[in-house]
């Protein structure tokens, strides 16, 4: 199986590559449109700032490429946010695969720390990405912006309010959390994605 990881100006891309290697998969890190189009799976990972990332994707034509992919695609963290319509981070139009607005957490009290950082549990995980999952399994999050619950939500998490921990539409899957940093639970999600 050919797995391509989208190469762009986001941080923490190597952690997903290491996670795939631990599963015996040797992914290719690329920004080449042809390689991305012909891969069996595409992972769009990363950590970073939305407007800078979108700027880079547009300059390299990757926005069109990602939108037009037809094989299973998995966006992770900033990858999920960039797959939405618009992000409040840098007030930027994004890829629009999910017609949703990415917004910032608003703390209610000083006990609500932002970023939302650490292990939190998945509620009502559904669909093939979460095959074999039950309520309450923990995954690792690091983010200050989130996608509200919507028609594409396939798992929710509660922090300040319930938000979308994962999204799915057609061949596009996305997680706000980092499966590559979520121990054995995360490895199961990556395995489910690779065996869709």
């Amino acid at each position: 199986m050919k797995v391509a990881v989208v190469k762009y100006n986001a941080g923490n891309i190597y952690s997903v590559i290491h996670a795939l290697q631990r599963m015996g998969v040797e992914p290719v890190l690329t920004d080449d449109a042809d390689v991305l189009r012909h891969a069996d799976r595409v992972i769009f990972p990363g950590q970073g700032e939305a407007s800078n990332a979108m700027c880079y994707l547009r300059e390299h034509g990757l926005d069109q490429v990602i939108r037009s992919l037809t094989q299973p695609v998995l966006g992770i963290c900033i990858g999920q946010q960039l797959m939405c319509r618009h992000s409040a981070e840098g007030n930027v139009d994004c890829l629009g695969i999910f017609d949703e607005e990415v917004v910032r957490f608003v703390p209610r009290t000083h006990a609500d720390k932002v970023p939302h950082m650490g292990w939190n549990d998945l509620q009502q995980p559904s669909g093939p990405l979460f095959k074999g999952f039950k309520d309450g399994e923990f995954v690792y999050f690091v983010h200050s912006f989130y996608v509200p619950r919507c028609q594409w939500t396939i798992a929710a998490t509660d922090y300040i309010l319930p938000f979308s921990a994962a999204l799915h539409r057609d061949n596009f899957y996305a997680t706000q959390f980092h499966p590559e940093k979520s121990g054995p639970v995360g490895a199961r999600i990556l395995h489910n994605f690779l065996t869709l």
Binding site: Y14, H18, R22, E180, K181, S182, P184, G186
Partner: peptide
């Protein structure tokens, strides 16, 4: 460590 560990 990065290659072998799956936690942050």
């Amino acid at each position: 460590v990065a290659a072998q560990l799956s936690i942050p």
